[in-house]
């Protein structure tokens, strides 16, 4: 295939432009974060005297250590349970084809497009009556439920394509249902499971609505919810706010850059299936 010179260079130019627009907000946060705290910097300008100390101050002001731990605990609560339960359900619905599996699957599909705002009000009263308000469980338990439609949908899509002969031969060898699942199917499903894990990690980490409604203490919230509180408290101090925002962004960015190939694949597949 011959690519004309002109075609190739307009393409490159466009790409570079697009990347510039994508990165601009990050650069702006960064440059602004270096201005003396408490000032009101005008636009996009490198400060005369970069204040690297702002990051340290923001780290302390935002109690980053606590926040990281909190988000981590929430992720550890949500992701493994969601992945396990949805893999099991996807296995039963997609592979075992349990009787009545189809209506149940449709019931899950019903929740695929659900905006969280639609259920946030009753969730508040439900979580309150369970006595879980202002604890991390208030985010963890509902999120597992709310992610279930997508997770089951995702895992079913994987299991639907697994050949039945696989299970037949295992059964011949006398494996029971759990062993069949644990020894044969889970290892085979690892690519689908790890993509799901990445997506759920990202969505949990960035969950905002549940965090601000169900948990008042920023130290018990997700990163995103904590950032909301940080903005409320330090909105007065633009450079500090920018520094804090960057710090709160940093963990996801770092993880993304390390696992970027998995992320891109998972996100692309994720939206295709959803």
């Amino acid at each position: 295939m011959i690519i004309s010179w002109r075609e190739s260079w307009t393409g490159r130019l466009l790409l570079v432009l697009l990347m510039a627009v994508t990165i601009l907000p990050f650069l702006s946060l960064f440059v602004t974060a270096l201005h003396p705290s408490g000032t009101y910097p005008a636009g996009f300008a490198w400060p005369a005297d970069p204040q690297w100390g702002n990051f340290l101050r923001a780290f302390e002001a935002a109690k980053m250590g606590e926040l990281l731990l909190s988000s981590l605990l929430i992720v550890l609560g949500v992701v493994p349970i969601s992945v396990l339960l949805s893999t099991m359900a996807g296995f039963a619905i997609g592979h075992l084809r349990v009787p009545g599996g189809r209506p149940v699957f449709l019931l899950f599909v019903l929740g695929l497009t659900l905006p969280f705002e639609g259920v946030i009000t009753p969730l508040y009263y439900q979580v309150r009556d369970m006595g879980l308000l202002n604890t991390r469980w208030a985010i963890i338990l509902p999120l597992i439920g709310l992610f279930m439609p997508f997770s089951v949908f995702w895992m079913r899509a994987h299991f639907v394509n697994m050949p039945g002969e696989l299970s037949e031969s295992a059964r011949m060898d006398g494996a029971n249902l759990w062993q069949l699942f644990r020894r044969i199917h889970v290892p085979l499903a690892m690519p689908a499971i790890s993509s799901l894990g990445i997506l759920l990690f990202l969505w949990t980490w960035n969950q905002f609505l549940l965090a601000i409604v169900l948990v008042d203490d920023p130290a018990e919230r997700t990163m995103s919810g904590a950032l909301g509180a940080f903005q409320g408290q330090w909105g007065t101090d633009i450079p500090l706010l920018c520094a804090g925002s960057l710090l709160i962004l940093a963990p996801t960015l770092a993880i993304f850059l390390v696992f970027q190939r998995h992320f891109v694949k998972a996100l692309l597949q994720g939206s295709l299936k959803g």
């Binding site: 697009l18 990347m19 994508t22 990165i23 990050f26 990202l202 980490w205 960035n206 905002f208 990163m223 995103s224 950032l227 909301g228 903005q231 925002s245 709160i248 962004l249 996801t252 960015l253 993304f256 850059l257 970027q260 992320f263 891109v264 996100l267």
Partner: peptide, 13 residues
């Protein structure tokens, strides 16, 4: 990689 950044960060940011 770059174009994916907005998908990864919290919308709040």
């Amino acid at each position: 990689t770059v174009l994916f950044l907005p998908q990864v960060i919290p919308l709040v940011a």
